[in-house]
Design a protein around this nucleic acid. Structure first.
Length: 774
DNA sequence: AGCAGTGTTTTTTTT
DNA sequence: AAACACTGCT
């Protein structure tokens, strides 16, 4: 832990810059805080100091970007000032806005029970609208439509404005679909994520008396990660702060990594122009990273232009061990190496929770999870939103949503026929027509249809009865009891039980977790009581945050994306899969802004490390041969960022990741980590600093490994099947339900196998599967 | 009409 | 791994 010594008082050992930032009271303040410069410390002290000087906690409005950061900040302030801290507004932009809208929704023509549509709901809605409008979804791609709509909303451009500014032509498919989308949301009493912010801006602009109320309430506004604000959020802040001007923002232009969400660097770059009298404080002393790590991170970010001049330095962590650059044959050997290294590091006294594995894209976690699991390394994939995004969880939640808000069409469409109850495509489409004609929610249209006697009408009636029952349960039962009833009465649990062991089991477990989550949910004590209220709050939490039990650190290695790692620090960090196309990602490579953002991502990733940093890449990746030849290995080039790393700060003892030409060259084949390299690894991690012969990277130092030993005859449990080496098209397998079959295709983790009963796709880790070899 | 089963395609990052 | 489109069966 690189903590400053504990403070006797609020203004204890802060460096002069930090103290300035804390002590500044009224008027605009810009804090430029480099990575690890004690930003959170300054923010929390500053709030504590404000309270100390007599500002009532209700008047302080602090916004962050993640729930984790908000929770941490609250906790740390509470440590400083005690339970008073609970009266502060410390939350994310989205939950703060959600809270405001729940109170003020009527002024905008929504009810207080408005639904929140996440991206999945958005895409479903748009897909329908595209089809209704008669466009080809391959041409007018729903997800692209959403991302363009979001693009506009992030920049505070609504449909009207977009048309006016000629950014959109009237009659263009996007314009048409966007309009339908807004109509649909309005009719469904629903807001999307961006609306949460945008509608508050609209509220403030259109209702001066409401704005005045909030200005009077929030006399001190603090914003964390200001470099990640978009134009809409910026406007919101300007509106709130225009009168009292007590706006304090903290940020680092080098850590702006949310461009895809509309983060606009101008917000921070122009702060001094927006507020001529702004006080500017620079926090450039880093207390987190060792000097060597800092050198590497600084070298990478130095290539960006248009930065606010600043250079991070350290006095407390001079020197440190060299940053280790590694090259591996393929993702599996990379993962194996990292897992091995974790074991070794823990042998040397590190705790599991000291270690983090950081990558650019979620998909990268997979081989690492497998390798860590194999070696028995406790690990946890942090973030993403694996849990609430599960289909079964979303289905269950859709029932809950529909009970809370009968106008929620997205929820209706999700569950009318899940489990199947006889409401098919044809019935549904007539329902939608009826609803659209009358501008009513689907539930209403369904009521009309249900009066009939046809088979379809009876099916719809059955569904309505179910929802009505659930509405009654909701009014009386506790939250967990209600959720349980939802699962039981909907027949969902039964459906999963029938689905068979493998599929259904994990899903059932997820639903149990959902129940546990409902059971442990603590409603806001300051909000009104009652089942409906608790239910609504729970839905907000679920929509805006992840599962809370995620935080249960315990003792495990953390795996996460760079975005999820922001704001965190670890003694030991592996930044993995530093391969061209992944990191920097291909999708950003084309435009210069995107590329610079990738560089900032690398900067963020590196600066998470306190004491040891490993950066690794591989030379090949697995991919799928489109001609059906099975899984193939493909050469990949190293990340260009590796070339900016200063040699003096690095240890290339294994095989330097910068070795070889930047464009990929074809290589032969994979194999286990050779014993020679294993020995090197051991020496390296055991802290043997003697120069080694192999220090100089050489192509010969990395010999072509031998082929993996041939599989002896016999049968194998499928834990072994995860290794593609042992699979091949044509290999015979035995499945305990489906019998003997032949592998047709390998698309890990899925196998397509031809059985006598026809071909099926089977997960490669299906425990009922064995390889037959003669 | 409804539905199960199969085959095809696809993801950068998150509130 | 999951969402869709397509097919053929009931």
């Amino acid at each position: 832990m690189t903590e400053l010594p504990p403070l006797p008082e609020h203004l204890g050992p802060l460096n002069p810059a930090q103290a300035d930032a804390v002590r500044h009271r009224d008027g605009p303040l810009l804090i430029l805080a480099g990575a690890g410069s004690g930003k959170t410390r300054v923010l929390t002290r500053r709030i504590a100091y404000l309270l100390e000087t007599g500002i009532p906690p209700e008047q302080v409005f602090a916004v962050t970007f993640t729930n984790k950061a908000a929770a941490e900040m609250k906790e740390r302030i509470e440590e400083l000032v005690g339970p008073e801290a609970r009266k502060l507004w410390v939350s994310t932009f989205h939950s703060a806005c959600c809270r405001i809208l729940r109170a003020e929704a009527e002024a905008l023509g929504y009810t207080r029970r408005f639904a929140i549509y996440d991206d999945d709901d958005q895409v479903r809605i748009v897909r329908q609208l595209v089809a209704d409008a008669g466009y080809d979804p391959k041409v007018v791609v729903p997800s692209a439509v959403i991302s363009r709509i979001d693009w506009f909303k992030n920049r505070r451009i609504d449909l009207e404005a977009a048309l006016e500014q000629r950014r959109l032509r009237r009659g263009e498919p996007l314009a048409r679909v966007w309009e339908d989308y807004e109509t649909q949301l309005r009719a469904s009493d629903a807001l999307d994520f961006n609306d949460l912010i945008g509608k508050v801006v609209e509220l403030f602009e259109g209702h001066p008396e409401v704005l005045q109320r909030y200005r009077d309430t929030f006399r001190y506004v603090l914003v964390d990660e200001y470099q990640d604000t978009n134009r809409t959020q910026y406007t919101l802040l300007q509106l709130l702060a225009a009168e009292h001007r007590n706006l304090a923002v903290v940020g680092d232009d080098d850590q702006s990594i949310y461009g895809f969400r509309g983060a606009d660097l101008r917000n921070i770059l122009d702060f001094e122009r927006d507020f001529r009298d702004a006080r500017v404080v620079r926090l450039e002393q880093n207390y987190r990273c060792s000097e060597r790590i800092l050198e590497v991170a600084n070298a990478v970010i130095a290539a960006n232009d248009g930065r606010i001049a600043k250079r991070l330095f350290t006095e407390t962590k001079r020197g440190g061990s060299r940053v280790t650059l590694l090259a591996h044959e393929d993702p599996r050997s990379e993962a194996r190496f990292v897992a091995d290294a974790c074991l070794r590091l823990v042998d040397q006294g590190a705790r599991w929770s000291d270690i983090a594995i950081i990558y650019r894209t979620n998909a990268t976690s997979q081989p690492f999870e497998a390798a860590l699991g194999e070696l028995g390394v406790p690990h946890k994939v942090v973030g993403g939103r694996p849990f609430y995004a599960r289909r079964e969880v979303r289905d269950a939640l859709a029932y809950v949503r529909l009970v809370t808000n009968p106008a929620d069409d997205a929820a209706f469409l999700r569950v009318v026929n899940v489990p199947a109850r006889g409401v098919g495509a044809a019935t549904l489409s007539s329902l939608r027509d009826a609803a659209r004609e009358r501008g009513e929610p689907l539930m209403k249209a369904a009521r009309a249809v249900a009066a009939g006697t046809s088979r379809a009408a009876r099916a719809v009636a059955g569904f309505l009865r179910l929802i009505d029952e659930l509405v009654e349960v909701a009014a009386a039962a506790s939250l967990p009891a209600f959720v349980r009833e939802v699962l039981e009465r909907s027949g969902y649990v039964e459906l999963l039980r029938a689905e068979g062991e493998h599929e259904g089991k994990g899903r059932l477990e997820n639903l149990e977790q959902l129940l546990r989550d409902a059971a442990t949910f603590v409603p806001d004590p300051s909000a009104p009581d009652g089942p409906a209220e608790v239910l609504a709050q729970w839905l907000d939490r679920v929509a805006l945050a992840g599962s809370e039990e995620e935080a249960g650190e315990g003792g495990s290695v953390a795996l996460m994306t760079v975005h999820n790692a922001k704001g965190l620090e670890f003694p030991i960090v592996f930044v993995v899969n530093m391969v061209d196309g992944q990191f920097p990602h291909v999708r950003s490579a084309e435009d210069p802004d995107g590329f610079q953002e990738e560089r900032r991502l690398a900067y963020v990733a590196f600066t998470r490390a306190q004491d040891r940093l490993f950066v690794s890449r591989c030379r090949h990746r697995f991919s799928w041969d489109p001609r059906g030849g099975g899984a193939i290995k493909e050469p990949v080039a190293r990340s260009p960022f590796l070339d900016q790393v200063p040699v003096g700060s690095c240890d290339g003892a294994l095989v330097d990741a910068r070795e070889g030409p930047a464009t990929a060259e074809p290589r032969r084949r994979a194999g286990p980590l050779p014993e020679g390299r294993r020995a090197e690894l051991r020496a390296l991690l055991d802290g043997d600093e003697r120069p080694r012969r192999s220090l100089r990277p050489s192509r010969r130092a990395d010999p072509v490994p031998e082929a993996p030993p041939a599989m002896p005859a016999g049968t194998y449990r499928t834990t072994t099947i995860e290794h593609a080496d042992q699979l091949g098209v044509g290999v015979k397998v035995l499945h305990d339900r489906l019998g003997i079959g032949t592998i047709l295709k390998i698309r890990l983790p899925t196998l397509v196998i031809s059985f006598s009963s026809g071909s099926r796709s089977v997960p490669s880790h299906d425990p009922g599967l064995q390889i037959l070899k003669e």
